[in-house]
């Protein structure tokens, strides 16, 4: 019986190996885990199907658990394309010479961070962050992920810039929720009094009726900055044939499946370049996240 079982195992392992060799020519992409995983998997499986149809190669999406894992997978050439945030994109392109930002969402040219507060704090919306100094001081505050642009980099920059203090000095407790949806839930539940998140996540959840506006409100909106983009490795043409990069770019820019775009949520994709993200790089250097 044991022998029989071993034989079966050998047989199934053979399948594993053939599957592995077949996947050598698979075009793999990932995305930063900035939202609930179920949503991401659903969204990017749709993108994978779309791309594999347009490009005539097998396309696979792999979910990761952290922003850094997305950057590392890209750098290690285990994925060739990624949907990065502003900061993770800058990090990835610095580490992979020749890689390029090829497309961004229409909304990503002028992205924003919303500061939100639990209504029990009584903090009202203000035009200028400096007007809230008294009220915000000593509150508990959560960022999103440590590697997030809208959830960490930009809010930290404005906190330092406006209040002249590090977040840990200014607030009584500073946390990293992990992603934007969780920041929203934690502030809504009062676990943290104040938080900062991606404005698109807020707007979408609001439109879907998923926010209890009696419990949480937007108190400040940052000035616009560039954010998310699709970044591709420079060596994809050698691996997938001449003109592959251009075909991927073309496919992304032509994506007009409304339901899919809605899930991002973006109204469409437009061309992007590495230089668009210079402001992000400078900000990251200024607050010491980048060397």
């Amino acid at each position: 019986m044991a022998l029989n079982l071993i034989r079966k195992l050998m047989f199934s392992s053979l399948f594993c190996f053939t599957a592995a060799t077949a996947s050598a020519e698979t075009f793999v992409f990932t995305a930063i885990p900035d939202e609930d995983e179920t949503k991401l998997v659903e969204r990017f499986k749709g993108v994978a199907d779309y791309l594999s149809q347009e490009l005539d190669v097998e396309v696979r999406y792999i979910p990761v658990k952290s922003y850094a894992a997305a950057v590392s997978a890209f750098r290690n050439n285990q994925v060739q394309l990624a949907w990065f945030g502003g900061l993770s994109g800058v990090q990835a392109r610095r580490l992979v010479p020749g890689s390029e930002a090829i497309a961004q969402g229409v909304e990503d040219e002028a992205f924003q961070t919303y500061f939100i507060a639990n209504t029990s704090t009584g903090i009202e919306n203000a035009e200028e962050l400096s007007a809230l100094e008294e009220e915000l001081k000593g509150k508990t505050f959560t960022f999103g992920s440590k590697g997030s642009t809208s959830g960490r980099l930009m809010p930290e920059f404005y906190i330092r810039d406006v209040f002249g203090a590090q977040p840990e000095e200014f607030f009584s407790r500073v946390g990293f929720s992990g992603n934007h949806t969780r920041t929203l839930r934690l502030v809504e539940a009062g676990t943290y009094q104040v938080g900062a998140l991606n404005f698109q996540v807020w707007e979408k959840e609001l439109a879907d009726g998923n926010i209890d506006t009696d419990a949480v409100q937007v108190i400040w909106e940052t000035p616009p900055y560039p954010d998310y983009q699709w970044t591709i490795r420079g060596d994809v043409n050698e691996r997938f044939g001449d003109g592959f990069k251009e075909r991927v770019t073309e496919a992304l820019l032509n994506l007009d499946d409304q339901a899919l775009l809605e899930s991002f949520p973006r109204s469409g994709f437009i061309p992007a370049s590495n230089d668009d993200y210079e402001p992000i790089r400078k900000t990251a250097e200024e607050i010491g996240i980048l060397d």
Partner: peptide, 24 residues
């Protein structure tokens, strides 16, 4: 008694993951 079967079989159920790039 069935431990050897598990130990010999287990490597085949680890999933394929993504290929290693040794330069990394």
């Amino acid at each position: 008694k069935i431990l050897p079967v598990y130990i010999l079989g287990a490597p085949f159920f680890l999933g394929e993951g993504l290929p290693i790039v040794w330069g990394n």
